[in-house]
Simulated assay, not measured.
Amino acid sequence: MGVPLSVLDLAPILAGGTAGDALRRTLDLARRAEQFGYARYWVAEHHFTPGVASSQPALLLGQIAAVTDRIRLGSGAVQTGHQTPLSIVEQFGLLDALYPGRFDLGLGRSGQRRTEAAAELAGPAEPAGERVVDGLLIPKPFSFAPLLVSARAALFGRLLQQPGAQAPDLTGVLDQITALLAGPVTDGHGNEARAVPGEGADLELWILGSSGGESARVAGRRGLPFAANYHVAPAKVLEAVEAYRDAFRPSAVLSGPRVMVSADVVVAADDATARELASPYGLWVHSVRTGEGAIPYPSPRDAAAHEWTEAERDLVADRVATQFVGSPRTVAGQLRALQRATGADELLVTTVTFDHADRVRSYELLAKEWLTAP
Rank of each mutant, 00 (worst) to 15 (best):
P139W: 04
T171A: 07
G212M: 13
G123V: 01
R194L: 15
P184N: 00
L27G: 01
E90C: 04
H306K: 01
S255E: 10
L205N: 11
L94R: 02
D246F: 13
S143N: 05
Q112P: 14
L348T: 11
L366R: 09
E45H: 12
G101Q: 03
V43D: 00
A65P: 09
R70K: 11
R102Q: 11
L147K: 04
Q161N: 15
S279P: 08
A367G: 05
G101D: 04
S255I: 01
L61M: 13
G213R: 13
L147N: 00
A219P: 12
E292N: 00
I295L: 02
P168V: 04
R194I: 15
E204W: 03
L98H: 15
R275Y: 10
T351G: 07
R25F: 02
L365W: 04
A33D: 07
N191W: 13
R158E: 13
G212A: 14
E116V: 14
T171Y: 05
F142C: 04
A22T: 06
E292A: 00
L181H: 13
H231N: 10
A122Y: 00
G101I: 03
G17N: 06
A15E: 14
T186A: 12
E130T: 01
A119G: 00
A11E: 00
L105A: 09
D358M: 11
A373M: 10
S251G: 08
T26I: 06
Y99Q: 08
V241N: 10
P57D: 12
D28C: 06
S362T: 01
L137I: 08
P85E: 08
H47N: 13
A247N: 10
P146L: 03
A44P: 06
P225Q: 14
Y281E: 08
K140D: 01
Q176I: 05
R70N: 11
T49E: 14
F103A: 07
V331R: 03
V325W: 06
S6M: 07
G135T: 11
T115L: 12
M1S: 15
G291D: 01
G111K: 06
A357F: 06
P225I: 09
I88W: 05
L366I: 04
E312M: 01
L8M: 00
V241F: 08
S143A: 03
S55M: 15
H231L: 09
V149G: 01
